[in-house]
């Protein structure tokens, strides 16, 4: 082994690359701080229980080791969001709190979103408001961030995982079946969904099929309202999207609605969004609502936010 070789998925920035990264980091933080976001630098290592919350996918991505001093399992942060949830819960604030960060994270395996195992995650989060204006604020800030990174034009994909979650609630399914179905939706496999629906008797089978095809321009929102008219939680989730659509329309943002979109982290509970550009084969930034995330710290607060890999985006043209 060459001693100067880095492990797989671990990379570094030098010279101009490092300088470019630093300039952009500064510009982004100035943007966030000017908008009233508080900069936080969470620790690299925490007790595993605080880092994972209930997310299996964060668990799989977290490096863990035994702390000889305390005998406890520690983990290296693989995602900043659970740490912000802890910071917010500790404050016991009832006001809206806004946080921003740019931090190196470490993941056991690279995923679609973070191509490397050592991305530098930048992001912003808003706690304490369930209002759709908070979602819009997060989406707009994400777009402003991409603008600083000179990524243009951007297509925003908007969905709401509450629709799928509400639909699942209408069925009597085991947790194994639910994760199968979730996985089929994540892969957007139309053939596998039809096999699943043939092998399992679901009361709302047709709604699952329709949900998988509910994507396109704003016209699909009205269609969705008709399909989910009798499921209250799904209906209000769609109404949230309609309200957001009204506001985004006036701002000339290119939006595609994708109601079958499920995020890779299970902690999302509501409106989810991601940004795309034709030159890239994956989402460049993504985020969404995760209202229950503080629950494991004893305080459930409404929350939304977004993140992206600044190291990756700072190096691409």
């Amino acid at each position: 082994m060459n001693t100067w070789q880095l492990p797989e998925g671990i990379d570094e920035l030098t010279g101009n690359q490092a300088y470019k990264f630093e300039v952009l980091r500064r510009q982004l933080l100035d943007l966030y701080i000017n908008k009233g976001f508080e900069l936080v630098i969470p620790p690299m290592v925490e007790n595993v229980d605080s880092l994972l919350l209930t997310s299996d996918s964060v668990n799989e991505k977290t490096f863990k080791f035994l702390d000889p001093a305390s005998g406890k399992m520690l983990g290296v942060h693989a995602d900043i969001t659970p740490q912000i949830a802890r910071i917010d819960a500790k404050r016991s604030s009832n006001k809206v709190e806004k946080y921003c960060y740019v931090n190196s994270i470490l993941q056991t395996k690279a995923d679609d979103f973070y191509a490397s195992r050592s991305p530098i995650q930048a992001g912003a989060e808003l706690y304490g408001s369930d209002d759709i204006n908070t979602d819009i604020e997060a989406i707009e800030l994400m777009l402003e961030s991409l603008n600083i990174l000179s990524i243009d034009p951007v297509v925003v994909s908007l969905g709401n995982v509450a629709i799928f979650n509400a639909l699942i609630q209408t069925e009597d399914l085991t947790s194994v079946k639910i994760s199968q179905l979730r996985e089929i939706f994540t892969r957007r496999s139309v053939p596998d969904l039809s096999v699943f629906l043939t092998n399992n008797t679901l009361t709302n089978a047709d709604k699952f099929t329709k949900l998988m095809h509910l994507e396109g321009n704003e016209s699909i929102l009205d269609e969705a309202l008709k399909v989910f008219n009798d499921i209250d939680f799904a209906k209000s989730a769609i109404e949230d999207l309609i309200a957001i659509n009204q506001q985004l329309k006036s701002k000339n943002i290119n939006v595609i609605y994708d109601l079958a979109e499920l995020k890779s982290y299970e902690y999302h509970t509501g409106v989810v969004f991601s940004a795309y550009n034709e030159s890239y084969s994956k989402a460049l930034a993504q985020g969404g609502r995760y209202n229950d995330i503080g629950k494991s710290f004893g305080k459930s607060r409404a929350a939304t936010g977004f993140s992206f890999d600044l190291k990756f985006l700072s190096q691409t043209k």
Partner: peptide, 16 residues
């Protein structure tokens, strides 16, 4: 059997 697959980002940027 054979399946038609689409890149998930292309699906958003070239949806129509």
């Amino acid at each position: 059997s054979s399946r038609l697959v689409v890149n998930s980002a292309s699906f958003k940027t070239k949806n129509l």
